[in-house]
């Protein structure tokens, strides 16, 4: 009902809803695409500030792609294509204390290779893969966020998975 009441996003309620809906996805999108060094949260803020400034010209339907485009462009302006560096989190865990030293050594070697392989993936594949495998999003959802077809999402995830397997296989 309220949807048709607002034509643009100048209303604070609409603006806040757009924030809760998209901020997190946008943040994670930027993180998986560019890595941690660009400070994704700042870019999210920049994009929303721009949206607010242009609120009269942007319809609610267009707001999401506006945000993604602005954040993407702003980030591209800053980096001169740095190598993507993802951060290895110590926390999401499993307690390894009972493992043998040999196992630990193998494991760290594995993670090392895995990190390199993940960073080496094309951006589009990495984003789809991480959203799917880590955040548990379904194909349709990812397709909506990225504005591409479901088939394309499936393909990206599958290719990413195959490449990762290829690169860690030697162990």
């Amino acid at each position: 009902m309220s949807k048709s009441l607002f034509k643009n996003v100048c209303d604070k309620v609409v603006f806040e809803r757009l924030y809760t809906q998209h901020a997190k996805n946008l943040h994670n999108f930027l993180y998986y695409k560019f890595g941690e060094s660009i400070n994704p949260e700042d870019k999210v803020q920049d994009a929303y500030i721009k949206l607010w400034e242009k609120c009269k010209d942007v319809t609610i339907e267009k707001a999401k792609s506006f945000l993604f485009t602005v954040a993407n462009n702003k980030t591209l302006n800053v980096i001169k294509h740095n190598k993507v560096v993802l951060k290895y989190n110590q926390n999401p865990v499993k307690n390894y204390t009972n493992e043998t030293p040999e196992f630990l050594l193998e494991e760290s070697e594995f993670m090392h290779r895995f990190k390199a392989a993940l960073e080496g993936l094309p951006e589009g594949q990495r984003i789809a893969f991480m959203m799917n495998r880590v955040e548990g999003k379904r194909h349709k959802e990812i397709a909506d966020i990225l504005g591409i077809s479901r088939k394309a999402v499936e393909k990206r995830i599958y290719t990413a998975l195959a490449k990762l397997r290829e690169q860690i296989k030697e162990l």
């Binding site: 943040h27 998986y32 951060k87 989190n89 993670m111 895995f114 990190k115 495998r133 880590v134 998975l161």
Partner: peptide, 13 residues
Amino acid sequence: ITQAAQYFRSPEL
């Protein structure tokens, strides 16, 4: 691979 990927989760916003 899925297990390993969990370690590279985006920081929570």
